[in-house]
Simulated scan of single mutants.
Amino acid sequence: MPPRRPDAHLPPFERVVADHGPTVLRVCRAMLSAADADDAWSETFLAALRAYPDLKPGANIEAWLVTIAHRKAIDVHRVHGRTPVPTETLPERASTTDLPGTGDDELWGEVAALPFTQRAALVYHYLGGMPYAEIGELLGNTAEAARRAASDGRAALRRRYSTETGSVK
């Protein structure tokens, strides 16, 4: 007698698609536009095909497929939420803070010219009020490395700003 396959208790996947495909499509269409629903339906069955051999005996296949479809629909919504909306022109907004474009553009230009780690440490600490331990974690460094990056950034700004403008020593 040949060894039993782990998926021997499951009907052929083609029959699962034929039996439950319309239900999954209705779920996708209820949550998404028609074009997105078709894509989510396909993604649902691709994901299900990969996981199908490991499905437990007696599992509710339709509920399992609807759960996958629901998650695929959420993925589509997330993608659409991250997609920028093109516009002809950007709206002008007056700033109420002393940030780039609202005052000392020369200084902000110098800050922008700093290496990323120095700029990030300065901005997170002085504008964001974050302690160096959190900055280090955020940048994948230690608190000491974040403190050093901020110190190096301040020193570079002092050198550049005083050399170019002659106003700070």
Score class of each variant (00 low, 15 high):
62 E>T: 13
99 L>H: 08
138 L>R: 12
51 A>Q: 14
64 W>H: 06
21 G>V: 06
136 G>M: 00
13 F>Y: 04
14 E>H: 03
118 Q>C: 10
15 R>K: 11
95 S>Y: 08
41 W>R: 04
16 V>W: 01
54 D>G: 14
88 E>N: 08
134 E>S: 12
48 A>W: 00
64 W>Q: 01
63 A>I: 05
28 C>Q: 00
80 H>A: 15
32 L>A: 04
101 G>R: 02
146 A>D: 00
74 I>A: 11
74 I>D: 12
113 A>D: 14
93 R>H: 13
16 V>Y: 01
87 T>K: 08
97 T>W: 04
134 E>W: 05
21 G>S: 07
14 E>R: 11
90 L>W: 08
25 L>G: 03
76 V>L: 04
39 D>L: 02
58 G>T: 07
149 A>L: 01
29 R>M: 09
33 S>H: 07
99 L>Q: 07
8 A>E: 14
123 V>I: 14
132 Y>G: 01
96 T>V: 13
168 V>M: 05
71 R>W: 11
120 A>G: 04
109 G>M: 02
141 N>Q: 14
109 G>E: 07
9 H>A: 11
163 T>R: 15
130 M>G: 06
150 A>P: 01
144 E>Y: 06
110 E>Y: 15
122 L>R: 02
46 L>E: 14
60 N>R: 10
67 T>I: 12
54 D>C: 13
158 R>K: 12
120 A>P: 01
109 G>K: 05
2 P>A: 13
144 E>I: 07
7 D>Y: 05
2 P>F: 12
158 R>A: 03
138 L>S: 10
114 L>K: 04
168 V>H: 10
155 A>L: 14
161 Y>E: 12
46 L>R: 13
132 Y>P: 00
18 A>K: 09
70 H>N: 14
108 W>P: 03
9 H>D: 13
87 T>L: 08
92 E>S: 12
151 S>W: 14
150 A>N: 02
13 F>Q: 04
91 P>I: 06
154 R>H: 11
104 D>F: 02
30 A>W: 13
56 K>A: 15
59 A>W: 10
136 G>I: 00
55 L>T: 15
92 E>Y: 09
20 H>A: 04
139 L>N: 05
93 R>Q: 09
97 T>M: 10
50 R>C: 09
168 V>N: 04
119 R>D: 05
167 S>L: 15
158 R>E: 06
139 L>Y: 00
164 E>R: 15
117 T>Q: 14
97 T>V: 11
93 R>P: 03
113 A>H: 09
10 L>P: 06
108 W>H: 07
89 T>P: 00
61 I>S: 01
